[in-house]
Design a protein around this nucleic acid. Structure first.
Lengths: 338, 338
DNA sequence: GTTAGCACTCTTTGATGTTGAGTGCTAATC
DNA sequence: GATTAGCACTCAACATCAAAGAGTGCTAAC
């Protein structure tokens, strides 16, 4: 796919103009910047159309880049925006005093990203196949009710109320802690099945009655805490793009049941760009998904990115995603270290 | 505002037909059900238009109910749908094994409600001016990091990570528990200000250094746990109503910054119906907000409802809201009791 | 290889006419 | 006095047509 320099220039110009205006670009407007006649540009454009980089909405309209054209632009032509120090500072300071769990930090990040880009943001909380339970705690709420808190090696914290039919006394709590220490701490959520738990509970004799619900809730909680959860923000921004009008509902539904999105974000390299149909997802065929994985403690464990129109401003958006992703990774890594 | 029986019948028919189809209703279609001629109905309709209950999009169209007309319909004409036992059972069983905090239960309820109504659902977590802190717990995470868990008398549970600059040892934890017992437990969040906390911390001598961040986080946490939070679900459903097309963005923004919505839901009686401009909120002038307060322990502490087009099916939606609200209240009350 | 020129295509806009739904009014009827 | 049939009227919706304008593709000249 070797293009002449001039063709590249034309494709880049058309793409950038189209990103800005959303309107097809004619040959005349490009004369000045390329200092050739419109006829020459027309010839070039016609060839670019033949190889599928440009499209015409109709005969007498200008050209717009095809999804393939956008792909070429992103891979070869795009001039990534250099974030200024003040840009970086503005992002970084958002996380300065963010105490809290990964979930909160990623919510913050998604909100920031959607505001900066005008697209919908999506973030995955850290997922680590080798995540293990770091600690389990029991917080008494009332006689028969306790809050089970689970801390994962990834820094994820989850809690759940558990109601028992009988009193949860100190002896019970001690037993629970012993069991936790023996069977759970240091283990991954999928090291034990519900069946395991039930045989374990059964072996406890008279204590089985009160312990079973606790252990079941704990198992569920461990599973939940090990899964990555999907955070979204700024969906309403997509309403501003008229070319997405008929797609927004499908996109929103897709964001509600995001399993396919998760695999999309987890795919490929650190930076992941899916343009239109590349996502292989019917609901997303008119949007691009750009995401970047963040690393916690040197391992890529999650991802953050945006969903927006195929004509999103990649040159500006990609650097923001990369920097936010890097920042989130750093913030989360610091937490684990401590 | 005394209307003849026939006028009432006509207004009701027009309203119900319009709710179903979204199209203006002409005089002819009502002939059969009222067994009078279309001319008679036209005369009546014309009078209903004069007193502002009906409107004409344009001369040669049928009539649609004005917002005032909808109000009259809801107050005087509507035939509320009687939920069947199986309807009730379907709702109730959603909450059967819902362990958990108010926030989770209300999220469930909002999701259910939006699915049942096709509207956006909105729910407020319990807010009680007299809510007090029931218990505070410290969960160690690492040497210098603890999780502060706060339990409110409303059943609300919140937790937050707190990072300290020095080790949080057992002595520190004991001191913290003593302070909590002396100054916080049994008190409301607004019983103490940040200034109070700082003087308190200052009085602790060498322990002030490690205790200050803990107490500050605790104060923030208490405030957050005392505020009601707003839960929304099913916003995307609003995209299906073409009459809202130009309003959805504003509505979504309104749902993101819901302070005005909160006061709308807290207003008035148990059941609250705001039709169109009654909300006195520009962004909501083309939608209706219907909500019902739920009671925990005999006190109305929160609210759940929907936002949908003015032509929502009140007769069906209102009973659902009331029943879900009642159910949520019961579920939450049971939890407090235990 | 580049470009001026020109015919051609197709959208957009506006004007015009037609159709059909639904009204309001009047006069006759019950 | 209330009801209704009849009819003229209004207006959106739709189709047709013409004109304007944007942009193209092609050809021939440079």
């Amino acid at each position: 796919m070797e293009l002449s320099e001039r063709k590249k220039k034309i494709l880049a110009s058309v793409t950038e103009r189209y990103i800005m205006t959303g309107e097809p670009v004619g040959s005349k407007v490009l004369c000045d910047s390329l200092s050739v006649s419109s006829a020459t540009i027309r010839n070039e454009m016609s060839e670019l159309s033949e190889i599928g980089f440009l499209e015409q909405p109709h005969t007498s309209a200008g050209r717009i880049p095809s999804q393939k054209g956008f792909r070429f632009y992103v891979n070869n032509l795009m001039n990534a925006y250099e974030m200024s120090d003040s840009d970086r500072f503005a992002v970084k300071s958002h996380f300065d005093n963010s105490d809290g769990e990964p979930h909160e930090i990623l919510s913050e990040a998604a909100k920031l990203l959607s505001e900066l880009t005008g697209c919908a943001a999506i973030a995955l909380t850290p997922y680590d196949r080798h995540a293990v339970i770091k600690r389990i705690e029991l917080v008494p709420v009332s006689m028969k009710t306790v809050l089970i808190v689970i801390l994962m090696s990834t820094g994820v914290i989850k809690s759940r109320i558990c109601r028992c039919d009988t009193e949860v006394d100190i002896k019970t709590a001690e037993l629970f802690y012993n069991i936790a220490a023996a069977y759970f701490n240091g283990h991954a959520a999928d090291d034990f099945t519900v069946a395991d738990i039930q045989t374990l509970a059964a072996s406890l004799g008279e204590k089985a009655f009160v312990m079973t619900p606790l252990l079941i809730v704990l198992t569920e909680l461990a599973r939940e805490a090990s899964e990555c959860s999907v955070i979204t923000d700024g969906q309403s921004g997509l309403l501003h793009y008229k070319e997405l009008e008929s797609d927004v509902y499908g996109i929103y539904e897709c964001l509600k049941h995001p399993s396919s999105l998760v695999s999309l974000l987890n795919k490929g390299n650190e930076l992941n760009i899916s343009i239109g149909k590349e996502s292989m997802n019917r609901a997303l065929e008119n949007v691009s998904v750009v995401s970047s994985k963040y690393a916690v403690g040197g391992k890529f464990v999650g991802s953050i990115g945006v969903i927006g129109p195929v004509r999103m401003d990649y040159a500006r958006i990609i650097p923001y995603i990369m920097y936010i992703s890097e920042t989130v990774g750093n913030v989360l890594s610091e937490m684990i270290d401590e």
